[in-house]
């Protein structure tokens, strides 16, 4: 018998999302390393040697360059007439499928950082606490289109979504 496999969702998020993740990861990484270095200097916990600094910088570069790229390759989504399908994560990949008939709310959000990049997040919730589908890093107009589309489609199906 042919073994069934799930294909990836069709649509990618905005390329600007990768830039956003790179910038925020870089800031996060640099701040963390700086705090650690200052703390180490203040309490004389360890003697800072060149290889420790190099290791720290390498970790930051990996965190700021590799992880966002990986995440960008994984993050995908798709909306059909009957279902929403998302794929998120990088190390742990999570695919979520929710029937259109079970959608309870469609949430549109712009975090302060996302606004700088003109991005938005769309969250689709079902009645289950374990079942929210989040599509982060959509271009603003695309996200708004998606919200309208989802609202229309979810309205078209009957039932109380539980």
């Amino acid at each position: 018998m042919h073994q069934p496999t799930l294909r990836e969702p069709r649509e990618r998020v905005s390329t600007k999302a990768r830039l956003m993740w790179q910038v925020s990861n870089l800031v996060e990484g640099v701040v963390t390393v700086a705090v650690l270095a200052v703390a180490a200097g203040m309490w004389d916990a360890v003697d800072l040697t060149w290889w420790m600094v190099a290791l720290g910088l390498l970790a930051v570069v990996a965190y700021a360059a590799v992880v966002p790229q990986w995440r960008y390759l994984v993050h995908r989504w798709e909306v059909t007439d009957t279902a929403v399908y998302t794929q998120t994560g990088w190390w742990a990949r999570e695919r979520r499928i929710a029937p259109m008939s079970r959608i309870q709310t469609v949430d549109y959000a712009e975090t302060p950082v996302a606004r700088l990049f003109g991005l938005a997040t769309v969250t689709v919730t079902t009645a289950s606490a374990a079942g929210a589908l989040q599509i982060a890093g959509l271009a603003r107009h695309r996200a708004q289109q998606l919200v309208d589309e989802l609202t229309l489609k979810a309205d078209a199906v009957e039932g109380d979504a539980t």
């Binding site: 799930l6 994560g89 190390w91 742990a92 990949r93 999570e94 695919r95 979520r96 499928i97 929710a98 029937p99 079970r102 079902t126 009645a127 289950s128 374990a130 079942g131 979504a161 539980t162």
Partner: peptide
């Protein structure tokens, strides 16, 4: 059943 989540870490994949 109101949805399916499939979660796999790199090790699991």
């Amino acid at each position: 059943v109101i949805g399916w989540n499939l979660r796999a870490t790199w090790f699991q994949r």
